[in-house]
Nucleic acid binder design. Structure first.
Length: 740
DNA sequence: AGTAAGCCATTTTTT
DNA sequence: ATGGCTTACT
């Protein structure tokens, strides 16, 4: 018997994970063990073996990226796009379901999905009657609490006293109720509602539930360790046929659970066998990504966690022998950046492509030192996971314009743009509209129209608001005739929005205009504006990832699922990693999650991993001595090379000890022991800083303010007269000498 | 209604 | 130290 082509070159465990199609199955897939391959092949196998049609398989992921990749790979296995797939993120699939049955939860099928800005604006309004002291209880916190409740599937009336909080003087539950009521009135949903409402429907409408249970003959779930309670409830409702647990296959790795702080419950994966009686478990432990040393180090580290399902990564590659994992102790964050950069340069000279380097940090503030050094050294880099395309102010504004164009009654969007660009609408004018709208039980747009007619506004404001109203009406009329691309283009032009950015003197204004052009271009990919807006609210993706050869800087969280030849892991110090905040808030549980994060970090590397820790680090304002991370001690000695680390380790116990200096260094201070370095550092660091190039009268460039001329300079900062942004005092380290 | 001064927090992020 | 946000002036 011949093996079908899609099952070729799989190891026995992978094959078991694919061919065990019936009944509940948990696939414990360690890092780099071919998880995505198993998921996609399993899908194809179900189809090719005629167990189900493509629309009878439900496949859920967490990110759009994962969903897209899976779709592509399934298409390539099958040789053609599969029909009517239920493949997407939890949220996009729930949105699809909710549009079908919206009326069961008091919505209509054209409900709108809110972004975070809208949510906050709404909470702000809803909270008014309680006169909450927002200093003491920031609204962000309130939103967080409501979100967490939603993650756990709690509605205002199912929150037990034990679940309630002191937040907002104990009014959180009542505010939640008011917020939900308001959402319903507006016929809108936040992200949490997409899951919450669907679960509500499945629970209260047996006919609907049965319909889906019959439809989905197979269910595939990616990253199961990241599911929260409501997602788990949703899956458990769907994964049942004639009272029996259905063919649900969850893939995940308890060792890579790093999102408990946003509601993920590792318990879900740990409890799988109990939740789904008769479940089988397949472990994928052969790693095809990393060297034996990297795997050994990672395995040794994660072994310190308790309550694991248990899994040991084994090298699966023939060329698995490689370098030891390097641990490097440095003086401070600048030395750390220098050390990393000099190592990158060394490898770069040996033709290692820049795209194969990653610097993985615990928190955003760590990136600064690396950026500075990379700029100085002239190594191209990219910060991954900064602000995403659809989160930029100009994009959100433009989208709000589109929303009002589609639906004049979209008050949240209306409010966002009514005074952008400035039309002389302040809190007073807005208040007037709100009062009018409430009085008439109508939208702000209707209220504005009424006020304009009845002379509620005078002078410049009236004129501008009139024009504002009119350009919507004109383009709305044009929408059908000319199409949405033209209408939106006109709208942004005639409302003065594009002009606002054209007149803006800030150096980032041209970039914003560029983004807006990009957005208008993207409109053409959709046949209607509503379709585009649905895409935007669910698939908040950034523009095409440029495949330039650049060093990637990103957070450990952001790196999950990625891999690089060479990985640098800086900042392994107590308080930074594990982070102090996690230590304080979550204690031992927190340490375990941080350790998993460390495990994720190490296992990103194919060939080389270098871990760094600094003896001193600036926290907010002042310098602090820092202790090497406890995780360093947990790495098994046989897989690591501790350069200059013995010294720092000893320093922790005895500051009068004798230290050894590392021989492996381009830069004297970078990897020497802390105490030796301390004596030299003040001199060296100042020489190293680029302040020497920043002299009075020299022309400089600043990322944010653009070009300018230095009029005054001292050690750390300089007064610069910028061409466009005027005179500012800025940190010298943010300045580069202008080349022209 | 727009600007200056004070106040606070400041990990991680997707949908 | 810094930036973001609210409050208090002009």
């Amino acid at each position: 018997m011949t093996t079908p082509s899609h099952l070729e070159r799989l190891n026995p465990e992978q094959r078991a994970a694919i061919e065990t199609t019936e009944g509940p199955l948990l696939v414990l897939a360690g890092a780099g063990t071919g998880k995505t391959r198993v998921l996609t092949t399993r899908f194809a196998h179900i189809l090719l073996s005629h167990r189900a049609k493509s629309w009878q398989v439900l496949t859920v992921t967490f990110t759009n990226k994962a969903a897209r990749e899976m779709r592509e790979r399934i298409t390539s296995i099958l040789g053609e796009p599969a029909e009517g797939l239920w493949l997407g993120t939890f949220h996009s699939i729930c949105a699809r379901m909710l549009r079908r049955h919206a009326e069961y939860v008091g919505l209509t099928s054209n409900f709108l999905i809110l972004d975070t800005d809208d949510q906050l604006r709404l909470i702000k309004q809803v909270v008014q009657p309680w006169r909450i002291d927002v200093k003491r209880w920031p609204l962000n916190g309130l939103m967080g609490i409501i979100q967490r409740w939603k993650d756990r599937g709690l509605t205002p009336d199912t929150i037990s006293p034990a679940d309630n909080t002191d937040y907002a003087d104990g009014h959180a539950r009542a505010i939640y109720a008011a917020y939900q009521a308001r959402l319903r009135e507006l016929n809108v949903c936040d992200f949490g509602d997409l899951m919450l409402h669907v679960v509500e429907i499945l629970r209260t409408r047996p006919d609907v539930l049965t319909q889906y249970q019959r439809l989905f003959r197979y269910i595939l779930v990616d990253e199961y360790q990241d599911t929260n309670t409501i997602q788990y409830l949703w899956l458990r409702l769907l994964a049942r046929r004639e009272g029996e647990p259905a063919n649900i296959c969850c893939v995940g790795d308890d060792d890579q659970s790093i999102y408990s702080w946003r509601g993920a419950e590792v318990e879900n994966i740990l409890r799988f066998e109990k939740d789904f009686p008769g479940a089988k478990i397949v472990r994928l432990e052969r790693n095809y990504r990393s060297t034996a040393q990297i795997l050994g180090a990672a395995a040794g580290l994660i072994a310190h966690n308790e309550g694991r399902l248990g899994k040991t990564l084994r090298p699966g590659r023939d060329d698995a022998q490689g370098d030891l994992v390097h641990i490097v102790g440095v003086w401070d964050s600048d030395a750390e950046a220098r050390e990393v950069c000099s190592r990158i340069e060394r490898l770069r000279r040996d033709d290692h492509p820049l795209g194969e380097f990653a610097i993985l940090v615990r928190a955003g503030f760590q990136t600064r030192a690396f950026e500075e050094r990379l700029v100085q050294t002239g190594i191209p880099y990219r910060i991954v996971g900064g602000l995403r395309f659809y989160e930029r102010a100009e994009i959100r504004d433009a989208i709000a314009y589109m929303r009002v164009l589609v639906n004049p009654a979209d008050d949240l969007a209306f409010e966002r743009v009514v005074n952008v660009p400035k039309r002389g609408v302040g809190t007073a004018a807005l208040q007037k509209m709100h009062v009018e709208a409430r009085g008439q039980h109508a939208s702000l747009s209707v209220a504005l129209a009424f006020l304009l007619k009845s002379g509620g506004f005078r002078g410049k404001a009236a004129e501008k608001l009139n024009a504002f109203q009119e350009c919507f009406e004109t383009q709305r009329a044009l929408l059908a005739k000319e199409g949405h691309v033209v209408a939106v283009g006109n709208l942004l032009e005639e409302s003065g929005y594009l002009g606002m950015w054209r007149d803006d003197k800030a150096p980032d204004a041209p970039g914003r205009l560029e983004n807006l052009k990009e957005l208008i271009r993207a409109l053409a990919d959709f046949s209607t504006l509503s379709e585009f807006l649905e895409h935007v609210s669910l698939v908040m993706e950034s523009e095409g990832t440029n495949e330039d050869q650049k060093v990637s800087i990103m957070t450990l969280h952001g790196a999950k699922g990625l891999e690089f030849d060479t990985v640098f892991l800086p900042g392994w110090e107590e308080g930074v990693f594990p982070s102090q905040r996690t230590l304080d808030e979550s204690g031992d549980k927190g340490v375990e999650e941080e350790r998993r994060l460390a495990y994720v970090g190490i296992t990103r590397a194919r060939y080389r991993a270098t871990i760094l820790h600094a003896a001193n680090r600036r926290i907010y304002a002042n310098w602090q001595e820092s202790m090497p991370s406890r995780f360093l001690d947990e790495l098994p000695d046989e897989y690591v090379d501790r350069e200059g680390e013995t010294a720092t380790r000893q320093a922790r116990q005895d500051y009068s000890g004798i230290f050894r200096t590392s021989v492996f260094s381009d830069d004297v201070t970078s990897s020497m022991s802390p105490l030796v370095a301390r004596r030299r550092s003040s001199v060296n660091d100042e020489l190293a800083a680029n302040t020497s190039k920043i002299e009075i009268g020299s022309r400089v460039f600043h990322q944010k303010f653009g070009y300018g001329v230095v009029v005054d300079a001292d050690r750390g900062s300089a007064e610069v007269v910028f061409e466009k942004a005027g005179s500012k005092r800025v940190m010298a380290s943010y300045l580069q000498p202008a080349s022209e």
